[in-house]
């Protein structure tokens, strides 16, 4: 009886997944398999009516792996993502710590939380154009300010400087997304059982201790989400580099997505190579994600046990405190 009941519950796992799977198969899986298939064919040019699998099916993959621009784009993408993500997650964590602290009630924190997410509301196109104008040469707000304050003796052409362009793109990404990351983290903190915090509080833990030893470990699942989605988003970065300066100067802001787009749409319609590059990217992202997953999971078991012990200890102590207080 009991066994049958459990089985009948498992059934709901399947049933509740049906809508997702159906939509996924139609709108996602089919186009993806189609793409993967194209990678092995001779599909290029606009008017191709017949598609043939190449005699050497991996020719496109080999071409892409030997393509200097593709390799450069991989390096650029990882570089720009890391320059943006590390400060972004740190700032988001600090803001989360400030805004969720029980001792340090920040006045107007509602306002700040709402405002910090706002760069994410505007379209990427607007932001890219805005920054392009900001760094205009020989006249532009940034140059004007730097020359007037004597930092520079004459206007600098930021947009032809490779490092400067990469930094600007990374900054735009950072600035557009730290609020988003912060909101996610805060929502994660709000989901933690308040009793744990109360226990820590009674225990006399200060803000830093509470954050490091209570909040962070409990945020682990949400942190994993942030890390994985940001990595996937970062490795697929497209809008800002394309709209800011088309991967220029000298391909310094060419990301892999932009490279893939250029293969398909910049004149030769190399759909097959674009598809092959997409699949290579897919494999790279998957490997990295699995790596992150394993890294976080290995710790999970160990940590969970530790935490359970700590929690038990804290609660015990908390009760002790309570008893003392009632005395």
């Amino acid at each position: 009886m009991k066994k049958r009941k459990r089985l009948s519950y498992a059934k709901y796992g399947y049933i509740f997944s049906i809508p997702f799977v159906t939509a996924f198969i139609i709108f996602s899986l089919y186009p993806t398999i189609y793409t993967a298939f194209i990678g092995f064919t001779d599909l290029k040019g606009l008017l191709k009516t017949s598609i043939n699998i190449l005699q050497d099916p991996f020719a496109n993959f080999r071409l892409i792996l030997n393509n200097a621009s593709f390799k450069l784009s991989l390096v650029n993408t990882l570089k720009i993502w890391m320059i943006n993500f590390i400060p972004q997650i740190l700032l988001a964590l600090i803001l989360t710590a400030w805004f969720t602290s029980n001792h340090n009630k920040i006045k107007g924190q509602g306002f700040f939380k709402v405002v910090f997410y706002m760069p994410n509301i505007i379209t990427a196109a607007t932001i890219a154009i805005l920054f392009n104008v900001l760094f205009g040469y020989p006249m532009g707000p940034v140059n004007d300010a730097l020359v007037k304050t004597g930092v520079l003796s004459q206007a600098y052409y930021f947009l032809t400087d490779k490092s400067a362009s990469q930094l600007i793109i990374a900054f735009i990404q950072f600035w557009m997304w730290y609020g988003y990351t912060m909101i996610i983290l805060i929502s994660g903190v709000l989901g933690i059982n308040p009793e744990i915090f109360e226990a820590a509080d009674i225990d006399g833990a200060n803000d830093v201790q509470t954050f490091l030893y209570i909040t962070l470990p409990n945020l682990r699942t949400i942190l994993l989400f942030v890390l994985i989605t940001s990595m996937i988003g970062g490795l697929n970065m497209f809008d800002i580099p394309k709209l800011f300066n088309l991967g220029m100067p000298g391909n310094a802001t060419l990301t892999t997505s932009l490279f893939i787009y250029n293969q398909a749409f910049s004149g030769s319609y190399l759909y097959n190579r674009a598809a092959a590059a997409s699949m290579i990217m897919f494999v790279i992202i998957a490997v990295l994600s699995i790596g992150v997953f394993l890294l976080m999971r290995d710790k999970k078991d160990v940590q969970e046990k530790k935490e359970a012990r700590k929690l038990a200890r804290q609660i015990r102590r908390g009760e002790l405190h309570k008893e003392e207080a009632t005395k």
Binding site: F70, T160, K162, P249, G250, N251, Q263, S268, L270
Partner: peptide, 26 residues
């Protein structure tokens, strides 16, 4: 533009251009 702004040499500019064409077009 990279050459005139002093970022790369003339040879590098021509090489960069040719590399880009070869890498992105058929």
């Amino acid at each position: 533009r990279m050459y005139t702004s002093g970022q790369i040499s003339r040879e590098e500019a021509v090489a960069l251009f040719k590399q880009n064409v070869a890498d992105n077009l058929d």
